[in-house]
Simulated scan of single mutants.
Amino acid sequence: MQNITAEELKQRIDNGEQLNIVDVREPHERAEFNIGGTHIPLGQIQTMQIDEIDGLQEQEVIVYCRSGNRSGQACMILETMGFTNVKNLTGGMLNWQDKIK
């Protein structure tokens, strides 16, 4: 698992890159604030219910949550499932909201 900073990800989004972004927070957290991407709560990843990202095993997948902890867990799980290029958003949405104005 690699890490990506809020600034790096924001720059790539602003550049219009096609990114595979996964939000592993709960629905109420996503409703408060999100940066887009596919919503797959961590519990679904833990039970391997990830049809939404099936086929992305060889592509970059960027995972985020509130603080970076759950997304780190999700990255490790995805790696055991054969995903070869997963990145954890350092500090999650708390860091994003603090750094990105």
Rank of each mutant, 00 (worst) to 15 (best):
N3L: 15
M81F: 15
E7F: 09
L56N: 13
N85F: 12
G36R: 00
A6F: 00
M93W: 13
Q2V: 03
M76N: 13
I40S: 05
N95P: 02
R12P: 00
R66A: 14
E8D: 11
M76Y: 09
T90I: 07
Q2I: 03
P27H: 01
L94C: 04
D98N: 13
E29K: 03
V24F: 05
K10D: 06
F33P: 01
I53A: 07
S67H: 07
T5M: 04
N34E: 12
N85D: 15
T47Q: 08
V86Q: 08
A31H: 00
I62H: 12
D98T: 14
Q18T: 11
P41M: 04
Q49N: 11
I62W: 04
N85H: 08
G37M: 10
R30M: 02
Q46A: 02
T80G: 09
I100A: 10
H39Y: 11
R25S: 06
I62E: 13
E17H: 02
I4Q: 02
K101S: 15
N95L: 06
G92L: 14
G37V: 00
R25H: 03
I100M: 07
Q11F: 03
N95C: 09
I100Y: 11
E26Y: 00
L19H: 01
P41S: 07
A31E: 14
E60T: 11
A31D: 11
N15R: 15
M48A: 15
N15P: 05
E7V: 12
T80D: 04
L56M: 14
A74K: 06
E29H: 06
E60L: 09
F83K: 14
R30Y: 03
F33L: 03
E26L: 05
C65P: 04
V61D: 10
K99T: 12
T47P: 00
V24S: 03
A6D: 03
G43Q: 08
I62F: 06
T84K: 15
R12A: 07
S67F: 04
T38G: 01
I45N: 00
F83D: 14
D54H: 10
Q49W: 00
C65S: 04
K87A: 13
F83V: 12
D23E: 01
D54W: 06
F33A: 04
T84C: 11
M48D: 09
M1K: 05
D54N: 06
T90V: 15
V61E: 08
N88E: 04
I13Q: 06
A74C: 11
T5H: 02
T38I: 15
L78S: 12
D14K: 14
R70C: 01
